[in-house]
Amino acid sequence: MTQRVWTEVDDYIAGLVIGDDPALDGALEASDKAGLPQIAVSPSHGKLLHLIARIHGARKILEIGTLAGYSTIWLARALPPDGKLITLEYDARHAEVATANIAGAGLADRVEVRVGAALDTLPTIAEEAPFDLFFIDADKVNNPKYVRWAIDNSRPGSVIIVDNVVRNGLVVDATSTDPAIVGTRELGSLLANEPRVSATMVQTVGDKGYDGFALVLVES
């Protein structure tokens, strides 16, 4: 199996169960035009986030790592009309592009983009807690800190999704000094030893290569 096959299958899935979507396609086009990195979730992953949020009945969502707002749009579409999504983005240029994309998708009334380092911003939104669902797709070195905050500001039944936890298989290297690998392994240890949650990690292949995500249920 090769990257070409993975990409072809992802394209097949997207064409089969997602199809053309002007708002989402426009968000990716705007991202490319602005020169943002091409690291948004794939369409099938975005649809998965959307379905998890809908199945869970999420009314309040926190996203860490906005980029151009592609995953934000998927998640916000799952909210009821009075729902709310707060998304945190470090880069002001990324936030500007995302804000325009979110408005173009007709979701500005339920999405708030906040700019700044997430670890600085999180204490300012604690009063908004608890959140029903968290999607964390930001700097990997700080994932353990983000997840600890999410657990502390959740409720029993809250769901936490963390992207990019396999890192092309390099997560198994206990000797790695790569900060992203170290942070990811620390996250795994946290989830394994945190009594308030039940978690798993799922490997994935597709248009974005070989990686995976963590799915966490807060139990207490």
Rank of each mutant, 00 (worst) to 15 (best):
P144I: 15
P144V: 15
L107I: 11
D120C: 05
T7K: 13
E89N: 09
I55V: 13
V159F: 00
K145G: 01
H45V: 12
V216G: 14
V172S: 04
D139I: 14
T124G: 00
S158G: 10
V141L: 14
A76R: 04
I125P: 00
I55R: 03
A108N: 06
P123H: 10
A95R: 02
K208R: 12
R185S: 01
F135A: 07
A105Q: 02
L217H: 11
E29K: 14
Y210G: 01
A103K: 15
D137G: 07
P80W: 03
I136C: 00
T72R: 04
H56Q: 05
G83L: 08
D82R: 13
G169E: 03
A92I: 15
R93Q: 14
V171K: 02
G69E: 04
V9Y: 00
S154C: 13
A129F: 00
S44D: 11
Y70T: 07
P37V: 13
T72W: 01
K140W: 01
I86R: 00
D32Y: 01
V159N: 03
K33E: 13
L24V: 12
I136Q: 00
R185C: 02
G169L: 00
D11V: 06
R185F: 08
R114W: 08
L187G: 12
D152H: 04
E63L: 07
L67A: 08
P195L: 06
G188K: 06
